[in-house]
Amino acid sequence: MKVNTYFIATLLFLTSYAAHSNGESEEQLQQRNQHFSQHYQSVCSENYKFINLTSSIDDHVQEELLINGVHNVNVKLGSEGHGYLQLAIPEWGTKLIVGHPVDTSVSILGAGMYVAKSKNIFCDELNMVSHFEIHEWGSYTLKVVAKKDSDLNISIIKIVD
């Protein structure tokens, strides 16, 4: 009986660790979701605007997204499995939340990431969120990496303190 109890406890620990692979405890996860509940719930939108991503970082300036609120976008990745989008950040000290599917990686080149892939308990599809801080206004590049030829929904939300 002790072996079964030990096995079940180990299995529960590993399941919990896999669910919070960024190192957050269940309590930290719940607190973060409660604190950002309004922002995390806006990630769950059904209305997405299609935006072209480029497969080359050199071509990403073809379209620019002005970050001034909530932007729910649908993107299609090409055969390379990655894409780029230019973001226009109009203010100093901007904080962003990017909602994305679990099997997707997002980064903003030149920005600081202070939460990587935390679980969003409010959404089924965009169930992961990453937080970024951008210190200076200007143009920044969002990089999205997922399976080749993926059709993805991504939310970019400016946090207003």
Rank of each mutant, 00 (worst) to 15 (best):
K2V: 15
K2C: 08
V3S: 07
V3C: 08
V3M: 04
F7K: 07
F7E: 07
I8N: 14
A9H: 13
T10L: 05
T10M: 05
L11M: 07
S16H: 04
Y17P: 03
Y17H: 02
A18L: 12
A19L: 12
A19E: 05
A19V: 12
H20N: 15
H20E: 10
G23T: 08
E24V: 00
S25Y: 15
E26W: 14
E26M: 02
E27Y: 08
Q28Y: 00
Q30D: 15
Q31D: 15
Q31N: 14
Q34A: 00
Q34R: 08
Q34V: 01
H35Y: 14
S37H: 10
Q38L: 08
Q38M: 07
H39W: 07
Y40V: 00
Y40D: 00
S42W: 03
S42Q: 10
S42P: 02
S42G: 14
V43R: 01
C44H: 09
S45M: 05
E46H: 11
K49Y: 10
K49N: 07
F50C: 11
N52V: 11
T54A: 01
S55M: 12
D59M: 01
Q62F: 05
E64Y: 00
L65C: 09
I67L: 13
N68K: 03
V73L: 02
V73T: 10
V73Q: 03
V75D: 03
V75Y: 07
K76I: 11
S79Q: 12
E80N: 05
G81E: 05
H82L: 09
Q86L: 11
Q86C: 08
L87C: 02
A88P: 11
A88L: 15
I89D: 00
I89A: 01
P90K: 11
E91K: 08
E91Q: 12
E91W: 00
G93T: 05
G93H: 08
L96I: 07
V98L: 13
V98H: 04
G99T: 00
G99C: 12
H100C: 06
H100V: 03
P101Q: 15
P101E: 09
P101K: 13
V102W: 06
T104V: 11
T104F: 02
S107L: 07
I108G: 04
I108D: 09
A111V: 13
A111H: 13
A111P: 03
A111C: 15
M113E: 15
M113F: 14
A116P: 04
A116H: 11
K117V: 05
K117P: 05
K117A: 00
S118F: 06
K119Q: 01
N120R: 03
N120A: 11
C123V: 06
D124V: 01
D124Y: 09
D124W: 08
D124I: 12
E125T: 06
L126V: 07
M128Y: 06
M128I: 00
M128R: 12
V129A: 12
H131K: 06
E133M: 09
E133Q: 15
E133I: 14
I134H: 06
H135E: 14
H135K: 10
H135C: 10
H135W: 14
W137I: 13
Y140H: 03
Y140W: 07
T141K: 08
T141G: 00
K143G: 04
V144F: 06
V145K: 01
D149M: 09
D149A: 09
S150G: 04
L152P: 03
L152I: 01
L152Q: 08
N153F: 02
N153E: 13
I154C: 01
I154K: 01
I156Q: 02
V160A: 13
D161I: 14
